[in-house]
């Protein structure tokens, strides 16, 4: 069953790369966070697929459940930040956040 591992690795890598590419190319804050979510999907697929291919599915399952709980907490914090930023700057554009650079 080792082929399954490379199979999931392939798809997980595609998802993670898509997310990172989205992070680099997008400008809307919410879009950026959707890209983060795509990376998170890649990670959970990677964890569970690894467990499945290596007969460790129960441990992998607990890891994915924990990962999802962390994700919820992270999403809540990030979206709260985005709402606050939108209230103050009336915009969701990452380029308008450039004030801090330098």
């Amino acid at each position: 069953m080792t082929n399954t591992w490379y199979f999931t690795l392939f798809f997980a890598a595609a998802l993670i790369f898509a997310g990172i590419l989205g992070l680099l190319l997008r400008r809307n804050l919410i879009k950026l966070f959707i890209a983060i979510e795509v990376i998170a999907k890649g990670i959970s697929l990677l964890l569970l697929g690894t467990g499945f291919a290596k007969d460790n599915i129960l441990v992998a399952q607990t890891l994915v459940v924990t990962f999802i709980v962390v994700e919820v907490s992270l999403v809540a914090t990030a979206l709260a930040l985005i709402i606050n930023i939108a209230r103050q700057t009336k915009s969701l554009d990452i380029r308008k956040l450039a004030r801090l650079k330098g």
């Binding site: 992070l23 990376i39 992270l74 930040l81 700057t89």
Partner: peptide, 19 residues
């Protein structure tokens, strides 16, 4: 404003790190 922006940037890069 600065605090929120810095926190969001920090969050984005930190999430990539944990990934």
């Amino acid at each position: 404003r600065d605090e929120l922006e810095a926190a969001f940037k920090y969050l984005l890069l930190s999430v990539v790190a944990t990934a």
